[in-house]
Nucleic acid binder design. Structure first.
Lengths: 216, 216
DNA sequence: AAGTCACACCGTACACGTACGGTAAAATTT
DNA sequence: AAATTTTACCGTACGTGTACGGTGTGACTT
């Protein structure tokens, strides 16, 4: 086997894939999110509709590729907005998260609100944390809060809790834009502060599989 | 105009609509959620596919009808699980909410995780609270907590905050079943307790449209 | 009672995602 | 060099949600 030829092949494939993603971006920019269809995308790059499936398993994978670009931007913004104070750094990350979700509802939906069907059984969650650089940043800032003593407990559990609250806020704001949450951004920040207060109240244990005690 | 005839008309229409919903339920039971298609549904009741649209504006409205039935059941269960202690009553409601969402992910999705496109501009949120009896129950139990002095502040704001946290937990568990949240039910309960701790820490102001102060 | 009208229902048609199978060229093996 | 396999792409076809325009039967008006 000629491995350099195989590598070149892979590279070319990646290039064409990138071209498709670029065309998809253009289509969305010109015709809106629901204007992105496989057929239009194929026409745009001069392929038959079915040829797109050589590069993406299904439409969801295309949407994911678009969303990943957007999420990379989120991570960039988070890193650019990093106050020294650990708590303020945490709030800054939340602020960027909120603006991202509220400003890119389509991308937010595809990543956080649609069923993940075909998932490789290996590397359940490390994968996701690696893929989503934003999550890494959150964990880093949680560690800073732990070091500063404003939070106590397991870093991953705390980060997951904060993510849960932020996601709950953003996703409800996206789904129910008419509901009187008040100013959207302010609502997310308020919920973030509430989560921080709750977390500061006690030491956060790690996440386990033991079913907790519950009434009834 | 003969109003009694018009009324009978409405009634018959409602009956046929109910028949369609029943057929939809049956279809889902027999062939699964994605087995529910307009064509199959129409065939089932002896109509042409397009005739279904005399009773539902679109497929989403059919899914909503199914979900509303399920949510009525949630409200029933909540009322049957009502400890005397206000905090335990709150936790019991959360427990039912969790079991409902985790046990009926499809219905949960259609109500809480899909865009609400065509929404009548009048009665923005009262409508929703009225339609979702479960929300009423939450507000009632919040009032009980306020009366008992374990929480302080605006009832609707507190209820919305608890909803946000519960929804964040449930929706993430649904969307990322592989992520190590630990035992799903336990995770929701833990997040609920965290929210209660955060809420207990200070008086919760009502929701307003003033943009809150934020870093950066 | 005659005329008008609303409405329940349907047939046709479109664009969509995508399953299936084919075909020809390129890469690899023999 | 010949044989084989792999690959890149495509044509056709199915089932989907639903827009559009009909059509006949009942109800309402006059």
């Amino acid at each position: 086997m000629s491995s350099s030829a195989a590598q070149r092949r892979e590279l070319q494939k990646a290039e064409l894939r990138a071209e498709l993603v670029a065309a998809a971006h253009a289509l969305v920019r010109e015709e809106g999110y629901e204007g992105l269809t496989i057929r239009k995308l194929a026409t745009r790059v001069g392929y038959a509709p079915m040829s797109v499936y050589s590069y993406f398993a299904d439409k969801q994978e295309i949407l994911m590729a678009l969303a990943e670009d957007a999420f990379a931007d989120l991570a960039r913004r988070m890193r650019q907005n990093q106050p020294e104070d650990p708590v303020e750094a945490m709030r800054a990350a939340l602020s960027e998260y909120a603006e991202f979700g509220l400003g890119n509802p389509n991308e937010y939906r595809t990543v956080f609100m649609t069923e993940k069907l075909k998932h490789p059984p290996e590397e359940t969650f490390d994968e996701m944390e690696r893929e989503n650089p934003a999550f890494q940043i959150i964990i880093e800032r949680v560690h800073a809060c732990l070091a500063a003593g404003v939070l106590k407990g397991d870093a991953r559990a705390i980060a997951t809790a904060l993510w849960t609250v932020a996601h709950g806020s953003v996703s409800l704001l996206i789904t129910f834009p008419f509901y009187p949450f008040g100013d959207p951004k302010a609502y997310v920040m308020r919920m973030g502060d509430l989560a921080m207060a709750g977390l500061a109240a006690s030491e956060t244990p790690p996440l386990t599989d033991e079913p907790g005690k519950c009434p009834g």
